[in-house]
Design a binder for these strands. Structure first.
Lengths: 110, 110
DNA sequence: TTATTTGTTTTAAATTTTAAAATAAATGAT
DNA sequence: ATCATTTATTTTAAAATTTAAAACAAATAA
């Protein structure tokens, strides 16, 4: 089983966090804020499609809304497999970030 | 400023952890244990070289040892820039993994 | 009907990852 | 001495991922 890539992790976590508002442009906005830089549209939509194809996400298309430009949105939701994959990276992160020795370079993680 | 990729993060953390034993094959062994699967040699050496070129790592070549096959090793050490980059991904991980709502899929990170 | 807004898709280049083969330099065995 | 084995790094090419930009689609506003 392969670990999620960085972007895949960020996108799955964004879907988790955004709950009922997890669709492409909103995910992009959310992650842009967290990263402190503008993500391109493709940087989100391309991996979203891949994650769905691999069964980490499910999706459904909404009805259009009556706002200006309010097209149908494709909403995403984590699958059990998606949660599992997140659990795996989390476990690796736990292992790698724990018990780092002091090497006198000014910072040790909390 | 771009985030470290997953593999870059893992390698920098391995160098940190291994301290005086941070060279290619040892890093590979260490990460293979953590990931629970065999990493190819290139999977470690290729990013190591890139991380050095970008200034996240410094290196020095040891003298050969008197063990069977004990060639000179290239040891790596984190630079201040490397620690900084780790600090950045750590900060993003903090933000993304904190306050995830319960979505009833059987697991919420500690 | 034309412009603007919100949203998704496509595409192609750049970058990263991976596996495999090649190379290098050491000791052990015959 | 020569050959085999071991430890170690380099190179290479294919596959996969990331990214930016352009294209496309469908809605409301003017």
């Amino acid at each position: 089983m392969d670990l999620l890539s960085r972007m895949e992790e960020l996108i799955l976590l964004a879907v988790w966090k955004l709950q009922d508002e997890a669709y492409g442009l909103e995910i992009r906005l959310h992650l842009s804020e967290i990263l402190g830089r503008e993500l391109s549209v493709g940087a989100v939509y391309v991996p979203l499609k891949r994650l769905k194809k691999r069964g980490y996400l499910s999706s459904w298309d909404s009805e259009p809304t009556d706002e200006r430009g309010g097209r149908s949105k494709r909403f995403f939701k984590l699958t059990a497999k998606g949660v599992n994959a997140l659990q795996e990276v989390h476990s690796v992160q736990e292992k790698t970030w724990r018990n780092l020795p002091d090497i006198g370079l000014g910072w040790v993680p909390a």
